[in-house]
Design a binder for these strands. Structure first.
Lengths: 350, 350
DNA sequence: TTGAAAGCGCTAACAT
DNA sequence: ATGTTAGCGCTTTCAA
């Protein structure tokens, strides 16, 4: 047995095939025929073929999502929200995970184009001008999620990264920290650059020199290396519990502001397992994102909340506005967040 | 400017439209015409419309994946692997996250059917007999991932849960634990039931009575409650650091085997933040899955490795066998895992 | 190998 | 409101 078609149902119900179509797409049909069609459809277990429908309408009710850095739990949380919201709106989700930064976003998006998605969301990844152009020509809306862009013709939703990072920095300064280091995210990303900028700006405004700025690239291992580089004298020597700290006069930072929570977890791990330093007594650690794990008692990370849900909702609002209206209206949204103080930082001023 | 069609390319290249189709679907065409068609296609920026192709071939080169319990990082890891492997095989991924257990898998799968997916994978969720039937009628292969089934006509890939749980239990017994409790996963899931069965069987084989078995449902909060129920006398009283342990003679477990890592993280958190008990000195904690986080120094969880990559690969092998061959060959695969001993457990026998 | 013709299952345009 | 006709962009006969 194969799939019943609208024609089969039409025959069974004694109506024309387009009438069947009308019933299932909500056009006006007399009550009598609606009933006959529904009965016949039920009997034959008919459901409209979404592909055929899409072919002709040009709308697939599918959106494509490309996500990079999926090891960062922030994106898992965002994905969950994307999925939920899209389902609410009657859309399906075609997902590509860019497995590394060398991955060519262009080819993934081309694949999405081939499959006629109605819109594209790129999470923490961006596109060549060529592909952007192509999407525009085909009137396929594109919104960047958690990635800004110089190209003012592309819509993007981010959190207010510069401001957020500045708030974190002000908090650390206000609580008496003197030697604040920053482990920055990848400088090829707007989040990495903006958070660093916020940090530098806030420091400069208070005339404090950063203790150090080390660029990591949002990977766990890079963050661990950066952490080791910040506290070289406190790294335990192999097999012992000793550090070379005592007889050296290097100054370690009294706070590390890390470019995202995922890297901050690595920093906490590094400090706890490879040094004798206590967090927050010896050193404060602050992250960015406020992923769910950050609130777990064992982690308890002070961080800046980047509201994934609101960012996702806004992203889809923008995307669907673009889908539904023809006139172009590019939007750059910055969602405000808030500082969440937990146990990985403390007040040194008293 | 709109999308060029095969007819446009044909006109440009001076060939018939089916010839263009042949070039792009790899049928035999003379070298000369191949070249002309490719040039014309390049010039017009033509790409075949995947929808139109799917409509006629009946194959969309898309597979549908439904995932439940996505808050468990095991599924994020699996999803990453699914995405990577499917891309290698030239397939796209249509994703639905079932947001809770009340979510109706049937309706999600029906949506997948409407969109003509070539195959369906259900991760930690199962389907009504009715929908299973429907998929079979339509010749859409279905494989369950990390979920067993009584229905022997459905293919499923799981890890060897009974055996794995027994290995964990034997390890705890071998290392001198006397009062072993089990926080079980949801009894409505095969993983929950099988791991519990492995625990009970291994305990019985050594004639040891379980200290307690509490069923949680794979949620973090349930695991915390279960943990509190296991060590009631050690829970710190509000605002103090005191427990009612001293003057009560309740016996607490010396080990807790938790139904998965995600819940084990909650148990560790509960013990560390709500009691004065030390892990592993006072109590050993063992999980199941070996998600990446389990190896983080701050967590350092003894667990049983359920090899996500191999499970995913096997799942897709089975799925594509079913897609490519018409003759039904149902397969139930159980992937072996291994015990990973880390710092959340210790040897009490010496 | 190649073109002409047919048709996948549906929606849209146009009568009535 | 509803049937007839046309056609979305492609693959697949069928001849030549």
């Amino acid at each position: 047995m194969v799939r019943a078609t609208a024609a089969d149902v039409a025959r069974e119900a004694g109506v024309s095939q387009p009438t069947v179509s009308r019933v299932f797409s909500g056009a006006s049909v007399s009550e009598d025929k609606v009933k006959r069609v529904r009965n016949a459809a039920e009997k034959l277990d008919y459901r409209p073929n979404a592909l055929a429908r899409s072919l002709i309408t040009g709308r697939s009710r599918t959106i494509g999502l490309v996500v990079a850095y999926f090891e960062n739990p922030f994106y898992a949380e965002a994905l969950e929200q994307f999925s939920t919201e899209l389902k609410k709106r009657g859309y399906a989700l075609l997902l590509f995970l860019a497995t590394n930064d060398k991955e060519d976003a262009d080819s993934l998006v081309q694949d999405l184009i081939d499959r006629q998605v109605d819109g594209v969301v790129l999470a923490s990844i961006s596109l060549s001008g060529e592909l952007t152009q192509k999407l525009r020509q085909l009137h396929i809306p594109l919104v960047l999620f958690n990635r800004g862009t110089m190209d003012s013709s592309i819509s993007a939703v981010t959190s207010a990264n510069v401001d957020g990072a500045a708030q974190v920095t002000d908090y650390l300064l206000d609580t008496g920290h003197k030697r604040i280091a920053h482990i920055a995210g990848w400088s090829g990303s707007s989040t990495g650059r903006d958070r660093r900028l916020g940090f530098e700006t806030a420091m400069a405004a208070r005339a404090v020199t950063p203790h150090a700025i080390i660029e990591a690239n949002y990977f766990r291992e890079s963050a661990m290396q950066a952490c080791r580089a910040l506290v070289p004298g406190d790294i335990k020597q192999a097999g012992t519990n000793q550090t070379i700290n005592e007889n050296s006069d290097y100054e370690k930072p009294d706070a590390i502001f890390v470019g995202n929570d995922y890297m901050a977890f690595a920093v906490l791990d590094c400090l706890r397992s490879e040094t004798n330093l206590e967090v927050p007594e010896d050193i404060s650690v602050v992250g960015y994102d406020d992923v769910l794990m950050a609130a777990w008692p064992a982690i308890n990370l002070t961080t800046f909340r980047q509201p994934a849900r609101r960012m996702v909702d806004r992203t889809l609002d923008v995307l669907f506005e673009l889908i539904e209206s023809t006139d172009v209206d590019v939007q750059h949204h910055q969602i405000a967040g808030e500082l969440i103080v937990r146990g990985s930082s403390c007040d040194r001023s008293c």
